[in-house]
Write a protein that binds this DNA or RNA. Structure first.
Length: 737
DNA sequence: TAGCCGATAGTTTTT
DNA sequence: CTATCGGCTA
């Protein structure tokens, strides 16, 4: 065989910790893998090693990742490492694997063959419709609350029928949940949580299937285990019930999705229930320089209930962490832009520079400054491809072509583009549907030719339905875009932004051309695919729902990368700007009051710090424009948790004018001149950036200082109390650290 | 029915 | 401040 299958090749470059994890005997294990410790590599190599040694084959492995991107990456890496055809391997996200199972056993799971997947927005739309139908005002029950309730219940494995309500509000929620389940059943749609729960129940109730899968999967491998929710853990337990080994990899310190149901406790639970003596720790970091790693370790050490690990590196200490307490958000953004330019001049590729922030709203001003400075940038976040309205509209037509009973899809496009079917007509259809207990589509069909506009719409959908089994997927998509009038509608709009939507519709057509259901390892090809001519459409739609378009940063972009800290998880950059480090923003005000919220924020901080390889900048704005108002902020407590000896404090130039002078005079020296370093400067026991309390002005931050010999004059920002100048000789200041 | 205007709310996000 | 949504008017 050409392929070099020797252990040496596969394992040679692993460190002892990694080697121990990869070659762990076929028993369950928990790998506690710190940031940058080669976690994905261990997981991938473990699979390859198992297969090389004949301990596992393509069919006996179940590998779960958290994102589609990670699944694809793992698939690519494994394909490069192994001579096997991996198509049959069950590798994917929890949801795509459950989807695969439900497509294969739709009937046993009590689902129609053509069941569709609701994404978050679809689910929200359905819930709004439900509340309106039940005549429940938003003040009484906000749609978001109900959506959260339903998802939380499903993720706890609870159906409406088993819920008991003691108070009226809960009773209402349960009542709505019951109705929601009913609507989903009628329309043949499943939400994300339902994919998990339905799959779980299928295995639980169907002993035959359960035994089949339990016998099949001997090795279950899970990535990002700290982000699993309770239902996913229960699903894994069920799958492993036949004695399979569970090899879970995760980092409790990087668990940042508690707000959407992630349960870090699963790690301890796994050790207990699978009789794992202790975690295998990967503590060797290959990413960051010493100072950055020390900062990360120091910050996270403030958390309790950790499984416990301490990252180490053989790298040099590197630069200190540069900290800037800017006067306002504009100043902060300008600093980031200028410093990016300097980094670029120093040879750092722009794509290796990231600007991180706690919330998306903070990106705008940074974006503006980068734009003004002529620095290319790319923002991650916001709408993704399959979430765009024009794409959702086109897909709604496609859904109707394979399943006209999909009320959600029908309502979305029955009058888009506008075709004279207004609220009144839709109410009529809804009334008829309610009376006959049928779908909106069936009601619309029953309205007869008198309702001219509705009849025309019915004919339109009917032509699509007829074409669906005949045309190829790309032709079908083109037909829908053109004949629905969508394309023309956007073309005729005045605003350029609306006209640009046609480009996305063209892109959807292109996506359909490239989409090959049989090529996708994450899709399932039913045995009777040939007899189901609309299968490509179903697969395309499912793919669109499950993979709403890549949102995570990709390599090789020659642009500064702007994203939230959450979005940066799993990525790394040579230089990182961590912006908006103000108390109340990061940690977020809202989470401080939540139980365990602060610890989660600190983990987020830990994730942020460990994204940086060589240079880390931390900045805050003493004044920030938020919701149209100026907010005053003090330095985040997390910044104070970084030992001062790792920090290098920068002070902003005294005036914009001064900076402009420097800018035009010597662009290369901006950094030195505009942001004068005041490191090690101790102003009679105080330093810039420090938080202090004054018994009259409250808490504030030292933003500037002047040594006067016998005393120092401190400029302190007391937020709402304003900026005050205080002399260390007279003022009574208490340090807050 | 369609488009416009005013009120309102406003973490983090993948599936 | 600004995006979104619902209600109101032409």
């Amino acid at each position: 065989m050409f392929f070099q299958n020797s252990d040496n090749n596969l394992l040679s470059s692993l460190n002892p910790e990694q080697l121990a994890a990869v070659t762990w005997p076929p028993q369950s294990a928990l790998v506690l893998a710190g940031a940058g410790s080669g976690k994905t590599r261990v997981l991938t190599t473990r699979i390859a090693w198992l297969m090389q040694n004949g301990q596992a084959d393509v069919h006996s492995i179940l590998a779960v990742t958290f994102t589609n991107k990670a699944a694809k990456e793992m698939y690519a890496r494994l394909s490069a490492m192994l001579p096997h055809n991996l198509r049959a391997m069950w590798l994917g996200t929890f949801h795509s694997l459950c989807h695969r199972m439900l497509r294969l056993h739709a009937q046993d799971a009590g689902l129609p063959k053509t069941f569709q997947i609701l994404d978050t927005a679809d689910q929200a739309a359905l819930i709004k419709r439900l509340l309106k139908q039940m005549d429940i005002a938003e003040e009484r029950l906000h749609p978001r609350v109900l959506q959260g309730f339903i998802n939380a219940q499903k993720e706890s494995g609870l159906r409406a029928s088993v819920l008991e309500a003691s108070d009226p509000h809960t009773r209402l929620l349960v009542q709505c949940y019951t109705e929601y389940e009913d609507i989903c059943r009628r329309e043949g749609v499943v939400d994300f949580a339902e994919l998990m729960l339905r799959s779980y129940e299928l295995l639980e109730h169907n002993g035959h299937l359960r035994r089949h899968y339990q016998n099949r999967f001997r090795h279950i491998l899970v990535d990002e285990f700290q982000d699993t929710n309770k239902l996913q853990y229960a699903w894994l337990k069920l799958m492993a019930g036949g004695g399979a080994s569970v090899f879970a990899v995760g980092d409790d310190d990087q668990s940042i999705y508690r707000f959407r149901g992630a349960h870090v406790g699963n790690m301890a639970e796994l050790m207990r229930e699978f009789h794992i003596d202790g975690p295998i720790k990967l503590e060797q970091n290959y990413r960051s320089v010493g100072h950055i790693l020390q900062a990360a370790n120091a910050v996270i050490a403030n958390n309790e209930e950790r499984l416990g690990k301490n990252l180490r590196t053989e790298a040099e200490n590197g630069d200190k962490i540069r900290f800037l307490s800017a006067y306002n958000d504009l100043e902060e953004a300008r600093f980031i832009a200028e410093e990016s330019r300097c980094l670029q001049k120093d040879g750092v590729p722009l794509g290796q520079i990231a600007v991180l922030y706690r919330s998306n709203a903070q990106s705008r001003i940074i974006e503006q400054q980068l734009f003004q400075a002529g620095i290319p940038y790319k923002i991650y976040g916001g709408l993704r491809f399959y979430e765009r309205q024009e794409i959702k509209h086109a897909l709604a037509y496609l859904r109707l072509a394979v399943n006209p009973d999909d009320d959600n899809a029908l309502l979305r496009v029955i009058n888009f583009p506008p075709r004279g079917i207004g609220a009144r007509s839709i109410e009529n259809i809804q009334a008829a549907a309610a009376e006959q207990g049928c779908s909106l589509w069936q009601a619309a069909c029953g309205m007869g030719e008198k309702a001219v506009k509705i009849a025309a719409f019915v004919r339109l959908i009917n032509t699509f339905t007829e074409q669906a089994p005949v045309l190829s997927l790309p032709d079908m998509v083109r037909e829908i875009i053109d004949d629905s009038g969508l394309y023309r509608h956007y073309q005729n709009q005045k605003q350029a932004a609306e006209q640009e939507r046609t480009e996305n519709l063209d892109e959807l057509h292109t996506a359909a051309i490239w989409f090959k259901p049989e090529d996708s390892p994450f899709e399932t090809l039913p045995e009777n695919a040939a007899e189901q001519p609309t299968f490509p459409i179903l697969a395309f739609l499912s793919n669109a729902a499950l993979e709403s378009g890549e949102n995570q940063a990709a390599e090789g972009q020659e642009a500064v990368q702007l994203m939230t800290v959450h979005a940066a998880k799993g990525l790394e950059f040579d230089a990182v700007f961590l912006s908006g480090m103000e108390e109340g923003r990061f940690p977020s005000e809202l989470s401080i009051n939540e139980r365990g919220g602060l610890q989660e924020e600190r983990r987020l901080m830990y994730v942020a710090i460990t994204r940086a390889r060589k240079k880390l900048y931390i900045s805050m704005a003493q004044q920030r424009m938020l919701h149209g108002q100026i907010q005053f902020g003090t330095t985040s407590r997390f910044v104070d948790e970084i030992p001062a000896e790792l920090m290098h404090y920068l002070s902003p130039a005294q005036s914009d004018f001064a900076r402009q002078q420097h800018l035009s005079a010597s662009p290369n020296r901006i950094r030195q001149d505009a942001y004068e370093s005041i490191e090690n400067q101790n102003f009679h026991g105080y330093r810039i950036g420090e938080n202090v309390r004054h018994n009259k002005f409250g808490t504030g931050v030292i933003i500037d200082a002047l040594d006067k010999g016998t005393s120092a004059k401190l400029t302190v920002n007391f937020g709402k109390q304003g900026i005050k100048e205080l002399d260390t000789e007279f003022a009574k200041l208490e340090k807050l650290n």
